[in-house]
Each structure stands twice: as structure tokens, then as C-alpha cells.
Amino acid sequence: MPEITKTRKAVIFCCENSSLAVNAVKDTRLLEGFEQKVLPCSGKLEVGLILKCLEREHPFILVLACPLDNCKYLKGNMRARKRVDLANNICEEIGIGGGRVRMDYVSSLDAHKVERILKEVREQIQGGLI
């Protein structure tokens, strides 16, 4: 397993609805250093996919899903939550540190919330917390 470096972009996994909020972010500079991967529903996200991204030296994974009770597919966001927790546990266990994967609930209108999250993630990465 290669050492985690900061040479790659952080990954945003988002569902179709939360991707609309990411697209509506006004200050596009905030999105620099992130690459967005859109899934039909956050419930499609697999632990393997998260670990694969970390293995490919992406420093951070941000998962955006619809608010609870608002998933178009009933419980996709709850499934994603469990997988994110599992991925973090695995990271902790294999010694690369938990907290590399963060999940937030964002509705399609919450562009300002996405901006705040992106700022926090950026500080976290640049501040060397990862």
C-alpha cells in the first residue's frame, strides 16, 4: 500500500440530488482540488470503492447524500452512512487513520451548506490533520 500523499484530488461522492447543490456552489474556487463522482443514489456507494480511492492516493473522501427520510430510494442514505462508518473503521484498523471519509446530508438546495463543508474539509487537509 503506497503512502498517502497530497498529490491527488479529494473525491466527492454524491447522489444525483446532492450533486445539484455541488453544481450550484457560487465560489467555484472552493471546488478546486476536489473531483466529483456522481452516483444515482448514495446507496450505490461501496466500501470497496472508498478504499480503492484511498489506495489510489486520493487524500480524502467526502460523501454527500440526501437528508434522512428524503432519499428517493427510501433508505439509500442510511446504507451509505453505514458503509462510510465501516470504511472509517477499516482505515483506523489498517493504520492510515480514521476520519478520512466524511459524510454529510445535503439537499439539492443547500449550496451554502456544501460551501461550508468544502471549506472545513480543505482546512482539515491543508492543516495536516490527515
Binding site: K44, L45, E46, R79, R83
Partner: peptide, 20 residues
């Protein structure tokens, strides 16, 4: 939605357009 893809323990299911 691809939820079954995420859940399948044998990774037997693929959602066209969203392969890993």
C-alpha cells in the same frame, strides 16, 4: 438506483453506466 449493486456480497450485479 444501484442499491442492490452496493449490497450484493458477491458483486454479481452491475448498473450499466456506473461500473466501478
Amino acid at each position: 438506483c444501484g442499491i442492490c449493486v452496493g449490497e450484493c456480497p458477491a458483486k454479481a450485479i452491475v448498473l450499466p453506466g456506473y461500473e466501478d
